[in-house]
Amino acid sequence: MRTFLGALTRGSGWLGLIGILLITLLLLFAAFGPLLDLPDPTRTNLRARMAAPTISLFGVGPHPLGTDQLGRDILSRIVFGSRVTLAVAGAAVILGGIVGTLLGLVAGYFGGFLDRLLMRLADIQLAVPLMLLALMVIAALGPSLQNLVIVLALVSWVRYARIVRGQVLAVREREFVQSARAIGASAPRIILRHILPNVLTPAVVVATLELARVIVLEAGLSFLGLGVQPPFPSWGRMLAEGRTYIASAWWIITFPGIALMLTVLAVNLLGDWLRDHLDPRLKVR
């Protein structure tokens, strides 16, 4: 624990510390925010349409961050939106990470045709801009939370696969793998028991860096109306809806955007710090 704190406060480590603090705060908000006695994020109130923020030095008022064009409470929508964002992005990163890591392990260990095929597929996928690929797949599958997770995972498996494959190539020829092979261990056993533990660190670092990208991508898709669908509140969708009323109600687009930026910043800071301390080799992408 002492070395952990030491690493966190030394040099540029304080940035990582800020990241961890922000993420903790965000998780607390997402977990316990609903206990704050906030209004229902989906309840409309046309009499209180586009009410200005009421937070000030003298108190918070009924709608601290104002209401949107349908009179829904913005603070409440941000808090509930954070749960949707974190759940979708988290699920996508885990799914993409598992698939990508497994494919990278298989490609690196067996090599040959399978390896060439998988890496070609990765090249092809990298030749299409992410957003476009996500759009095409969503358009084909239809928008839903489940499909959103699938698309985001699909978009991110490549990075895990490439980095894990590279690590496997380095580990494969080491003595402990050869001795495992010599005593007759099966391929799945060698891969899972002997190689996997040695490639997990870079995979975790990639996962953190991916999380930020996936969050932004999800917000972008929701902004275009292809991501999170109503009634679920979503930051990207809030921005899209507020865009129409930008001239009369600045708060509708301002606060969800701040939430989004702080989240991405926190994850980026944590990712950078993890990379620098766990695996500096990943620095140049």
Binding site: A219, G220, I246, I253, T254, G257, N268
Partner: peptide, 16 residues
Amino acid sequence: LLGQATPVFWLGLLLI
């Protein structure tokens, strides 16, 4: 760091 963390479409809205 802030520039990298700001989603482009939100920045666009703010600039507008």
